[in-house]
């Protein structure tokens, strides 16, 4: 779109527009960078969800009727779906947070260890979330 080019077709940069470094968009997504931003994104999701959770407790202070409305809202399938996503974020943020604490202690910083622990955190979060919801819906109780 109307970019100035020189004689051999190279784009001439506007001298006022300085190139930025690093060029995030030219990097192939890697487990390290993707999990790093995921930690922040899950943090935001958890924050929003925490306000909802707090509202549930606050509803309890208004008495039986308000609390039963809150319980009804939570029981809707869309709420349950959101809660499923929220607990997945919770398990991920919890496990990856522990991974960060290990790094702060100077442990597990080799690239191979970072890659390994990254995949471990992702898979463990998924497994824990499924186990949590199976217990919540009384799946294991039915087996006994």
């Amino acid at each position: 779109m109307g970019k100035k080019t020189n004689l051999v077709g190279e784009i001439i940069q506007d001298p006022k527009v300085k190139p930025l470094s690093p060029h995030l968009q030219v990097y192939r997504p890697q487990i390290t960078s993707v999990l790093s931003i995921t930690h922040r994104m899950t943090g935001v999701v958890l924050s929003v969800g925490s306000l909802g959770l707090a509202s549930w407790i606050i509803a309890g202070a208004f008495g039986e009727q308000v609390f039963s409305v809150a319980q009804l809202i939570i029981s809707y399938w869309i709420s349950q779906l959101l809660l499923f996503a929220w607990t997945l974020c919770l398990f991920y943020h919890l496990l990856n947070g522990i991974r960060h604490l290990f790094w702060d202690a100077g442990k597990g910083l080799e690239i191979s260890q970072v890659t390994w622990s990254g995949w471990f955190v992702v898979s463990s979060a998924c497994v824990l979330n499924i186990i949590f919801w199976l217990i919540a819906y009384g799946f294991f109780a039915k087996l006994v």
Partner: peptide
């Protein structure tokens, strides 16, 4: 973060026991 790690596990365990409970 260090304080929240065990507290979160306690919270997760508690929510399982509190599913669908009334105010009482």
């Amino acid at each position: 973060a260090v304080a929240l790690a065990p507290l979160t596990l306690w919270f997760v365990w508690s929510t399982i026991q509190l599913m669908g409970v009334d105010l009482a």
